[in-house]
Design a protein around this nucleic acid. Structure first.
Lengths: 329, 329
DNA sequence: GCACAAACGCGAAACGTTTCGCGTATGCAC
DNA sequence: GTGCATACGCGAAACGTTTCGCGTTTGTGC
């Protein structure tokens, strides 16, 4: 494995000149050429550890999230990865599986591994814990999708409340008065916000809230599947159901179909996230679609700004969701 | 940020003694204690770059794959990430989006970033290209899910042929003679193998192959959805359809349902991968289920063995898929 | 052809760790 | 109390890069 000294020797210059060449300095034309030749001949590559040690930065970005196998997160991470790579950063991905201890440990692990910046989808850490783990290292952070109350960092969120408000309002316009909701854990930021949109829409349309119509459990298939059964077992059934997550939506629709319940004739459903699946149906299921690409791009942009020295106050972006199919409203 | 020298000074020992402590050497009890105290007091953490520079290894593993947002890959990566973390490695994940140029670039990028080992789900690289990019660095590699012909590395695959053979045989046992298949691109390793299983099952049961019944396109929802339409538009329709991928399965089922085609009464379907969705249906859709956890664990184990010095011949494991729901056969 | 300014390249030091060989302290047996 | 073997800690060197200040070369204007 060739070093910068080997290149310098072969090119007949000093190591510092080669370094200057690599890092974009101005050199005499003849030196440029001989260095380029030497690098090619030796197949020289900069040693990233020596560089990081000296320069005190690694050009690596930590991404800490609950679960990379969830399609929404997967898509966001794809977008992040692409943006960072295009700017010469690489990504260290770490999943904590909605486990509090692991969320702590993996955050600590990323920091210990010398990340320059952090993309963080939090779940169960307090502001105190976050600062305890990161405070002394003051790593630029962008929170994505959710935020920890009391942590002042850049953040990229979606406008959960408005999106859900629109969706539920649409169901009202279609004539529904008994509209149920199946959501994820109430302790999670996004579930809370989405519930607020639901409540506000009901209230603005003069519909009384009935807590028998709201089911909060895990963000998974089973919650949607069993939620359907629980709601339909009631005497005064809902005529429409709104969901707040990909897996819940699929579980719900699957259960409805199995029971021979026609959508939307017998039961109206408004889904979340699974736009590819839902919009290709003959009678497309309307869904709230979060802009994964845009989320990733915005978050990566914020972080890169910070890494390049931007020192302004923390910024928060609320990206708008789209209702799909777009002609629905 | 405290260094090892600060710790040494505070503990009243030399830096080399602290290093010995950190790396598990044997020290006098009083030194152990004063060093531990100093580390706590200063919140000292090893600088990973200095360590990597000196020790010539980074404890980082590259994972190169097409698309992290696909649920199957996502699950495998979750398992890999967990195993490596438990052994003190972290993962550098890089997606190339089924793009040949990116597959090259990202491989090169990972190597340039000093990974100790590589987990690789290949698609479109030749053995020559692979060796050109990695040869001089001889990085321990485990190929997963697919392999490049001519690259001799450890590999973890599933027994695609047998799994599909079983699935198609099951359809035959149920009385089907016209069994269609919808698969991914024929150039991809897994699609090829799965097609072999399909052909062999037909042949073993004395069924003539009809190439109008085989559709090969992308591994996506649209392929399944349109595949249904194309197959059902034929004069001599299939009575059963077999798929080889998650998205294709969902597309196919969605299309069938929209047309009011009853499964399995009107059309029998055998799906792939989407076990969570399919087994929760009232009449569970049988699927081939790949053992994502086991794949990840086995691959991580192989790589860790190599990193710890194992020098045996390349090993290949073929893991068995399961037919779900398990009582199907 | 000379003087000066600008451009450019060089060497040394530093980043924070691990490793290696050597020297000192320790403990044991007599 | 002495001698020896062992255990332990120390200092120095090395990993490969970037950076900084200084000295040399180059070019320009007269």
């Amino acid at each position: 494995m060739a070093t910068i000294k080997d290149v310098a020797r072969m090119a007949g210059v000093s190591a510092s000149t080669v370094s200057k060449y690599i890092n974009g300095g101005h050199l005499r034309q003849e030196n440029v050429e001989s260095i380029r030749n030497a690098i090619d001949a030796l197949d020289y590559r900069v040693n990233p550890f020596a560089r990081s040690l000296k320069a005190q930065r690694s050009r690596s970005i930590g991404i800490l999230l609950p679960d990379i196998s969830a399609p929404f997160y997967g898509s966001v991470v794809m977008a992040l990865d692409k943006c960072f790579r295009e700017h010469g950063y690489h990504t260290l991905i770490s999943c904590y599986g909605s486990n509090h201890g692991l969320e702590r440990d993996n955050l600590s692990f990323l920091i210990t591994n010398g990340i320059d910046g952090l993309i963080y989808i939090p779940e169960d850490l307090s502001a105190d814990e976050f600062y305890e783990l990161t405070g002394n290292f003051s790593i630029p952070t962008v929170q994505v999708d959710r935020i920890i109350q009391g942590v002042a960092s850049d953040a990229v969120l979606v406008n959960n409340t408005d999106a859900v408000y629109q969706a539920v309002s649409l169901l009202v316009q279609r004539g529904h008065r008994r509209i149920a909701a199946i959501t994820g854990p109430k302790s999670v930021f996004t579930a809370k916000e989405r519930l607020v949109g639901y409540l506000r829409a009901l209230s603005d349309h003069g519909i009384l809230y009935d807590d028998a119509l709201v089911i909060s459990d895990e963000n998974d298939f089973a919650t949607g599947y069993r939620g359907f059964e629980a709601l339909m077992a009631q005497l005064d059934r809902p005529t429409a159901i709104f969901t707040t997550n990909y897996d819940i939506t699929i579980g719900l629709v699957t259960a409805a179909r199995e029971q021979g319940v026609r959508i939307p004739e017998d039961l109206d459903i408004f889904g979340f996230d699974c736009v590819e699946i839902c919009t290709m149906m003959k009678t497309p299921l309307p869904v709230v679609h979060q802009p994964e690409q845009e989320i990733g791009q915005t978050a990566a942009g914020y972080l890169i700004d910070r890494l390049e020295g931007y020192g302004g106050l923390p910024r928060t972006t609320r990206l708008e969701c789209r209702i799909e199919p777009s002609g629905t409203i």
